[in-house]
Design a protein around this nucleic acid. Sequence first.
DNA 1: CCAATAGTGTCTGTTAGACAATATACA
DNA 2: TGTATATTGTCTAACAGACACTATTGG
Lengths: 239, 239
Amino acid sequence: MSRSLTFPRPLTTVDVVIFSAATDALEVLLVRRPNSADEPYPNRWAIPGGFIDTAKDADLEACAMRKLKEKTGVQAPYLEQLGSWGNAKRDPRGWSATHAYFALISADDRRQADVHPRSQEAEWFAVEEDRVKERLAFDHAEILKAAVQRLRGKVAYTSLPGFLMPSEFTMSEFQKIHEVILGRTLEKKAFRTRVLTSGLLEEVPRKKEGANRPAQLYRLKNKKRPVYFARAITGSAIE
Amino acid sequence: MSRSLTFPRPLTTVDVVIFSAATDALEVLLVRRPNSADEPYPNRWAIPGGFIDTAKDADLEACAMRKLKEKTGVQAPYLEQLGSWGNAKRDPRGWSATHAYFALISADDRRQADVHPRSQEAEWFAVEEDRVKERLAFDHAEILKAAVQRLRGKVAYTSLPGFLMPSEFTMSEFQKIHEVILGRTLEKKAFRTRVLTSGLLEEVPRKKEGANRPAQLYRLKNKKRPVYFARAITGSAIE
DNA sequence: CCAATAGTGTCTGTTAGACAATATACA
DNA sequence: TGTATATTGTCTAACAGACACTATTGG
C-alpha cells in the first residue's frame, strides 16, 4: 500500500451558509448544536452542515445540496462554493477542514421552507454588517463573514440579488434588496437603467396595486445564471 | 465518543497551481507523478500538491505554502484559494477532496526558482487557452482550467498580473502580460491611462535602454495586495 | 534619414450619479 | 386635492476604446 494512505486524515465537513431576504434585512439560517457533552459547542448556533457521507454523497456539491435539502426542503437554489477552512484547532476533535458553500433562497421558497419540524432546531437570523448577534460555534463567525463579504462584493457587479426575490417583483423591491445587502441607498434612476438595459429581467403583464401608483412587475429571465456587469456600482466593497 | 467521528474520512490533499509568465506565454509548473505501480497515474504530469501533514501544517494555507516552497523554493508570492474538488471517483484510492490554491510567481523569483534538483521531476509548461498539451493526472485538467479562468477573469478588473512581473518593468511589458493572459491585444492609450491613474505603480528613476526610445521603468507600489478596478476591461471573460 | 518602440492628443460612446420633474393610483 | 410611490428627463463626470500623431533612441 502506498505510503500516502497512512497519513492521518483530517475530519472533513461541508457547511452551507443559507441566505434569504426579509423585507428589510438579509437573513441567514442557523441551526442549534446538539446539547450533549460529547459534542463540541453544545447548544451553540452554527452554520448548517456536517460530515461528508462517502456512501451517499457523490461529490462535495451533492453533499452541500443534501444539507440544504435537509434543513430547508429546498431543491435547487443558487449554490456557490465559498471556500474552505481547515486547521488543527477549529474542531476540538482534531485537525478538520470544511468545504463551505453559500446558497440564496428565493422569497417564495423561503415561505415554503419548512424549517421547524426537522430533527434540529433551526432559525433565521438577521445579518447586521457581516455578522449575527449570537456567538457561533467553531469558526463559523469567520465563515459567515466571508460569505457576507462575498455576497456584498458580488452585488456590486452581478445580479445575485435576483435569486433572493420572489418569482415576481417590482423594481423598487429589487432595489431595496440591493440596498439592504450593500448597507446603503442607491440612486433610483441609475439603478433602473442599469437593470433594464442589462436584459436581466422581463416584464410581467401585470402591476402591483397599492394605495398609490401601481408598479410594473418583473421576473428573472434566467433563474440559473446571474448576469455580470462590466461596471461595478461604486462605493461598495469589492471582494 | 461522538457518532460523527465514526464516519469514513475522505482522503484530503492540497494542490497549488503555480503560474509564472514567460515572454510570450503564461506558464504553469507541473510535476511528474512517481513511476510506481501502487501510485495512481504513474508518470503523468500533475499539479503539485499532496496530503496534508496534520503534524506539520497548522492550516490549509500553511500546507499550500509548504508545497510551494518544496517545489520552487519561493517564499511569499501571491497565493489565493481557488476552490475545492471532492468526489468518490477522482482518486482510485477512495473518496478524496483537494483544496486547490493558485500562486503567482514573479519573473525574478522564477529565475531563482530552482525547480530541478528536487525530489520530483518538475517543469514549466505553456498554457494555451485554458490547458496544457499534456494529459494530466486525476482531475487536474479541470482544476487547471478553473485556475486559468479565474486568473483571466480577474485580469479584467484587478492588478493581479503585477505579481507576475519582475521588480522593475516597462509599461509595454506590463501590457504584454495582460494580453498574453487575456489572449487578445489591448489598446495602448487606454491601458496606460487606466494603469497610471489607478496609482498601482510608481516610477523608478531609470529607463530601459534599447535600440529605440528608452522606456520608463515602473514598480508595484504594493507587493501584497492587488488593486481592484471599478470597470472591467471589456470583451474578456468574466469569472 | 530610417526603423523601432515609447508615449500623447483628441474624439466618441457608454453608463453611473445627481437631482428635478412628471405620472398614476387611492383616500 | 393631497399623499405616496412609480417612472422619466436631463445634465455631468469618469473612463474605455479607437486612432492618429509626436518623441527619442540607435544604426
